[in-house]
Design a protein around this nucleic acid. Structure first.
Length: 681
DNA sequence: TTGAAACTCT
DNA sequence: CATGAGAGTTTCAAT
């Protein structure tokens, strides 16, 4: 056993050096797990040999070591595994395992930074997970996120910020010691201290952040939403979404065949044009060479320079042809579009100011191209995207055809979740891909989404009478908007049938308003003049005056407080906005952007809090009724559950009871469907 | 490894 | 002055 004291941090690190040390340490830690104790712990992991996945994977990585901060001063640490194998005799391993099992005592508060990650490791060791109603786990990453959504919630950043220490001290030590990428090759006493520092910071952060949560009125959101949500999400990640791999491989094959022929067509076409141009450029280059021989001084230098430019160009074209024209290369495409004489029709530029060749532009120039190249490119891009998505799903599927996406609860400024590896929140709508997502044998998918939740939230905050009435009576909001904005002289019930085009446009206006759409952009999307678009927006606000007032109120509020707070207490902060707004000559574009963001944040954050609160509440009810039903996925205002068939009706009943009634006194209706695959929804 | 550009979703 | 909010992934090209 070795002890190291960090006088600056007042941190005593106790490091085990042998199996005997581990036994003693486990017993000491065990003794401290008494009711009322607050203990932070943290794992270090490493990739196992032969795992080609480059991301950190708590379901597969080797457990290098763990540290326990049992109070604010004392931290213990010991090694666990090497290359995925335990480093100790079976008896010692059993003691370690039972220590982790003792953590499930609800009288002891456990603190983790990114709790889903470490709890998955605990799950691998013990086979145990906390229940969704277990309040004895704290996540300092989420606390830090709630306290300041604008700054990174990473442990070292948060610790540096809230503990006012040099939080990277031990990481620097690790880097100095190593310059080796593998944690296993570094002296254990160095990594041990690094590991200790992490749980020490986590333990210290917990108290500081808890104070901040209380100060800012965020404690209820943290306790009632996040504690349960994180566990429900962790269950979804562990469980995984089953996919029909054979079906996906079939679709992949079909796409690849189509892509190959499109690729060949475009290659041949592109290369022919480049070849022709190369000859032209060579002639030009020769001419310039002859010319430059006749000249002197500055003129000669200029001609040589131009000659070199021409030479570079045809050398580039030659290498392009040699390596094969690649329709995925934006650079090559731009050259080609210029040679095809289509560039003159393109006004749109990319963010950096170069020629844009996105779908919108291609749609515009496709009619000017008789060769079929542009149309082929449009189709190619679409299919290539789908192919990539399918390939990504197949690559990430485990041996049981399960896809374990992870959900980040701290990834967005509005409180939305994000999904990654793979992202299940941006799968193309429609059947092709979503049909591949299926329930396990003997199970159903229950898919539930909130209908028009953002508009309903806006109406609620605004107490917009006309809008509330339409929602309450089950009327069609888009029809009403169409009627008023386009002066349609028919009863509102007939709009859907008689003026579907106007209704479609009204839908764009309805959603656009929530995002702060300008007359300029609305004109572009509706393909009408800016002036007409402005009139529509005006009429919209006459029809729904409450919404106009709400927008003004939110802007007024954010300019005073630099903060938007939703009905659950969630905050979206805009530091510096007030000062910037009242300062002469500041960036108006940026201010306008932040004001749009502020209004949208109120609506978006409320919508997602309702959805996530319903997930937590529903999952807790399943627990209370002893139904072993886990969440499978969440897509902002949609949730997917996977019950055994015998529980399907019960799930529909409970979801239908809970989800629409999260806000007291205001119903947020849902659509719910039992599906054989995700595409059926 | 990073940034730009393209495309996907709610 | 620019002009709709929030995300993640893939590919190419440059560093």
């Amino acid at each position: 056993m070795r002890e190291i004291f960090d006088a600056e941090w007042k941190m005593k690190m106790i490091i085990a050096e042998s199996a005997k040390d581990v036994l003693q340490m486990v017993s000491e830690i065990s003794d401290k797990l008494i009711p009322g104790a607050i203990v932070a712990f943290d794992f270090e992991t490493e990739k196992v040999e032969g795992d080609d996945d480059d991301s950190v994977n708590p379901l597969a990585d080797s457990l290098f070591s763990v540290s326990f901060a049992c109070n604010e001063e004392t931290v213990y640490t010991f090694r666990l595994q090497k290359d995925g194998q335990w480093m100790y005799p079976e008896m010692v391993v059993q003691e370690v395992v039972s220590l982790f099992k003792k953590l499930f005592n609800r009288g002891v508060t456990k603190v983790l930074h990114n709790m889903k990650f470490d709890l998955k490791l605990v799950y691998r060791i013990t086979g145990m997970l906390p229940q969704v109603d277990d309040m004895s786990w704290d996540d300092t990453m989420i606390m830090s996120y709630l306290v300041d959504e604008n700054r990174t919630a990473k442990l070292k950043s948060a610790a540096g910020r809230y503990l006012t220490i040099d939080a990277n001290k031990y990481e620097s030590m690790l880097n100095d010691a190593g310059k080796i990428s593998k944690i296993n090759d570094i002296d254990w006493f160095i990594t041990a201290q690094y590991n200790c520092a992490d749980s020490w910071m986590t333990r210290r952060l917990r108290d500081v952040l808890w104070g901040r949560l209380i100060e800012q009125g965020l404690d209820s959101l943290y306790k009632n939403l996040y504690k349960g949500l994180l566990i429900a999400l962790m269950e979804a990640e562990i469980k995984g979404f089953r996919v029909n791999a054979e079906y996906l491989r079939e679709q992949l094959k079909k796409l690849e065949d189509g892509l190959n022929s499109k690729d060949k067509f475009m290659k041949d076409y592109g290369e022919a044009i480049f070849q022709r141009k190369i000859l032209e450029l060579k002639d030009k280059w020769l001419a310039l060479k002859v010319e430059s021989d006749k000249l002197n001084g500055v003129e000669k230098e200029d001609a040589i320079k131009r000659g070199q430019e021409v030479e570079n160009k045809f050398l580039y074209f030659e290498s392009t042809v040699r390596n094969g024209f690649n329709p995925r290369s934006v650079k090559q495409l731009k050259e080609l579009v210029q040679l095809m004489d289509l560039a003159k029709f393109i006004e749109k530029t990319t963010n950096k100011g170069s020629l844009s060749l996105d779908r919108e532009v291609l749609d515009m120039i496709v009619s000017k191209d008789s060769s079929g190249f542009i149309q082929t490119l449009i189709d190619y891009r679409k299919d290539e995207k789908t192919r990539g998505t399918i390939q990504g799903l197949l690559d990430r599927m485990d041996k049981d055809n399960l896809i374990h996406s992870s959900y980040l609860a701290h990834g967005t400024v509005t409180g939305r979740l994000s999904s990654r590896d793979p992202n299940l929140q941006n799968l193309p709508s429609g059947h092709l891909i979503r049909d591949a997502f299926i329930p396990r044998d003997g199970h159903d998918l229950v898919v539930c989404d909130f209908s028009q939740i953002e508009l309903r939230i806006a109406a609620y905050y605004a107490q917009e009478e006309t809008m509330l009435k339409i929602f309450m009576e089950g009327g069609d909001i888009h029809s009403k908007t169409a009627l008023e904005c386009f002066d349609l002289k028919v009863p509102v019930e007939e709009i859907k049938k008689l003026f579907p085009e106007q209704r479609r446009k009204a839908k764009i206006i309805n959603f656009g308003i929530l995002y702060g759409l300008s007359d300029y952009s609305l004109g572009k999307t509706l393909d009408c003049s800016k002036k007409d678009a402005g009139l529509y927006i005006e009429k919209y606000y006459v029809t729904f005056p409450g919404l106009k007032k709400l927008r003004e109120d939110v802007i007024k509020e954010v300019l005073e407080t630099e903060t938007v707070t939703n009905m659950f207490g969630r905050k979206r902060r805009f530091p510096g906005l007030a000062a910037a707004y009242y300062k002469f000559g500041s960036n108006e574009k940026e201010i306008a952007h932040q004001l749009r963001e502020a209004f949208n944040a109120l609506i978006q954050s409320t919508a997602v809090d309702i959805c996530n609160l319903s997930i937590t509440k529903i999952r807790k009810r399943f627990l209370a009724e002893d139904l072993l039903i886990w969440l499978l996925g969440q897509v902002h205002d949609e949730m997917v559950w996977e019950p055994e068939k015998k529980y399907t009706e019960k799930v529909v009943e409970i979801v239908t009871e809970i989800a629409p009634n999260i806000v007291e006194g205001y119903v947020t209706p849902i659509d719910i469907k039992v599906c054989r695959n995700w595409g059926e929804k």
